[in-house]
Design a protein around this nucleic acid. Structure first.
Lengths: 206, 206
DNA sequence: TCGTCAGTACTGGACAGTCTAGTTTCTTCG
DNA sequence: CGAAGAAACTAGACTGTCCAGTACTGACGA
């Protein structure tokens, strides 16, 4: 076996994961059959069942695998410099990245997918919330605490402030996207949401 | 027919609506069969099909019927008196009612139900958002405009301010509830969310 | 009497998960 | 290196179940 290749089994495994992710995102849990997944992965159904005991197991695995992607966002949030001059600019940039990231179609589809099945898989929704969203919020709280230490912000409860920051920015666009099929936000709108949210935040917390 | 009674047909109709609402909320669209609904409504399946051409039609009707319930919330939002002394108290009371209303289990179930099926019924999600949430937001914007006119708040864009008000309050608790099976907020937590949200709002907009 | 209803059986299709038979790839050991 | 066996794979048939929507019969109410 060449060094750059994985074994056959591992290759099939990731093919199934990818196909399942795509299919579940596009058609939901109930709307996706194991035959669909096998076909999309170019794999026999038997092989799917070899790698994942059943549909539920496959579903939870692909959902939990997506929590890796929040790492990038966590880094972003951790990296706000303590620069009084550029504070508003830096927060606005962060706000913009937040908004852009969370209004990506795949992110919204994933959100819908998990919420839709929160009744059937409650532990899965909880796990995703904690490993995904809570982690970003906690990092943001730490950042705010640091900015408070440097006298750039006046923050009694950093975690609450992080909640408020994200709420000011995300409530409306994410809600809208949840209820409509597709995002339908122009770049311009996101700019305005970001600027207005940061202004309100600074008015309350500087 | 006694004056207090509706005709037989109308009685069956509402029985089916109620049963369908209950069943869809509890088990989702796919998780609810027409037999379930008929049985729960104490009605034959044929009667269900007499009143509603098919499952989709029944679903959209019961969802759209729930938008009536926002009227009470609209009234609430419209009724903030222009009293400078009591402004914070009044807004906090409103905030609390907001939070309590939106964290009711049935409201959360309904939200999940619509979001879960936003792909299949996009026009339904959009309609519910506009007739439900947007209407409250618009009323809140009008109220804020009035408070600005009386000099109690300083608001450049009332609709944006309404967005911020609701975002400060609702983002975290509603999100949490979306991803977890059940609400799990104590009355105490809601109090704190309400007070903190209003304080941040007033710091930004007074 | 006529339309509406309950009860129930039925049709047709979808789908999770199993099974079988034959093929390909990996591994191991002479 | 090369053969032989082990493991994973493909293709597709098959079972059992569930469910939307239809059809029919006999009862019951206006």
């Amino acid at each position: 076996m060449a060094a750059s290749e994985e074994g056959r089994s591992a290759r099939k495994h990731t093919a199934i994961m990818n196909a399942a992710t795509k299919a579940f995102m596009a058609n939901g849990y109930a709307g996706t059959s194991m035959d669909d997944i096998a076909k999309l992965a170019a794999v026999s159904k038997q092989t799917v069942y070899k790698h994942f005991t059943d549909k539920e197991k496959l579903f939870t695995e692909i959902v939990l695998a997506t929590t890796d992607r929040v790492d990038a966002m966590v880094d972003l949030v951790a990296d706000i410099p303590a620069d009084a001059q550029a504070l508003e600019d830096n927060l606005t940039r962060l706000a913009h990245q937040f908004l852009t990231a969370l209004t990506q179609p795949e992110v919204l589809q994933l959100r819908r997918l998990i919420i839709a099945n929160a009744d059937t898989f409650p532990q899965l929704g909880a796990a995703w919330y904690e490993q995904g969203f809570e982690r970003i919020l906690a990092t943001l709280a730490t950042t705010f605490q640091r900015l408070d230490d440097h006298g750039l912000l006046r923050i009694a409860d950093p975690h609450l402030a992080a909640n408020h920051f994200s709420g000011l920015l995300l409530w409306i666009p994410v809600n809208k996207a949840m209820f409509h099929g597709s995002p339908q936000h122009t770049q311009d709108e996101l700019d305005r949401y970001a600027a207005a949210g940061v202004q309100a935040f600074l008015a309350a917390y500087r």
